[in-house]
């Protein structure tokens, strides 16, 4: 059925046509458009020179830093969660636990982030509890800074990371952990020598899914972040909304895209990750 099946192959290309056309027309063609705009008008690199000026370099680095940092926090939290659900949770509660932890995936992230405004504001829930119980004399500024933004990001993306990592964690043979324990390994040794290497594919997949979206996020920094810390998405949106400077915004998008793919590639350089990726 595989060697010479010309009519079957033709039909398969026809079936492939519709999703492929959509992905090419809305994924690849817009990127080409942006690239052409970024070097115009007339072939030139002024737009790129402007992007690399110190003013925008800061925003680029900040976006990448937020992407890396928040992804790391999500992974650090997702490890114990998926480990517990896959290996500690009693069988009949496992599905309920998994569904409960991943349910927010279905909800609206603008709404979810908005909910945190009520919790972290000066007169919000956390401050009322801290002041009310006498732990603090006056309210803390918890809102509109890197902490509130990180909370907002983790809140949205943790379910994605948990769901992606769970598959690897479930495949991890618990007997390996027991064997290591019997041989006297500490929890930390067990984690670094057994759990981490065997669940790396899940962690890599989760990173692929959330990292680019965090680094390029717009709504969460607008709702919960500090107005002074500018991420790339805001600059692109501003340029787009003001109907000016498309060339500059396009160059900015392109440099940002390269940085995102570059940092992902940097992760893939690690031999362990590369070994995992090859198996895909």
């Amino acid at each position: 059925m595989s060697v010479a099946n010309a009519p079957g192959r033709l039909r398969d290309w026809l079936v492939a046509g519709s999703p492929l056309l959509l992905a090419l027309a809305l994924g690849v063609f817009p990127l080409l458009t942006l690239f052409v705009e970024s070097i115009g008008p007339g072939l030139g690199s002024e737009n790129y020179a402007a992007v690399l000026s110190p003013l925008y370099r800061g925003a680029l680095l900040y976006s990448i830093g937020v992407g890396v940092g928040v992804t790391a926090v999500c992974l650090a939290v997702a490890y114990p969660i998926t480990y517990w659900i896959a290996h500690r949770c009693p069988d009949r509660y496992r599905l309920v636990a998994l569904v409960s932890v991943t349910l927010p995936l279905w909800l609206n992230y603008v709404v979810l982030n908005y909910a945190w405004v009520w919790i972290l504001a000066r007169g919000g829930v956390v401050n009322r509890i801290l002041v009310g119980t006498g732990l603090l004399d006056s309210s803390l500024d918890l809102l509109y800074n890197n902490i509130s933004m990180t909370i907002g990001f983790v809140y949205i993306y943790l379910p994605y990371v948990v769901l992606t990592m769970y598959v690897s964690m479930e495949r991890l043979d618990y007997q390996l952990i027991e064997a290591a324990r019997d041989l006297g390994a500490s929890d930390i040794r067990v984690f670094f020598d057994i759990v981490l290497p065997r669940t790396l594919p899940g962690a890599v997949a989760a990173t692929l899914i959330v990292y680019a979206r965090i680094a390029g996020a717009f709504a969460t920094p607008e709702i919960l972040g500090s107005p002074g810390n500018v991420m790339i998405a805001r600059l692109v949106v501003q340029a787009f909304r003001q109907y000016t400077n498309y060339g500059f915004a396009a160059a900015l998008s392109f440099v940002f895209l390269l940085l995102v793919l570059g940092t992902l590639g940097l992760g893939a350089l690690s031999p362990r990750v590369r070994r995992e990726l090859r198996q895909w």
Partner: peptide, 10 residues
Amino acid sequence: FVPTVVVAFG
């Protein structure tokens, strides 16, 4: 794996 803002703008 392409940032949404880049695709959306494009």
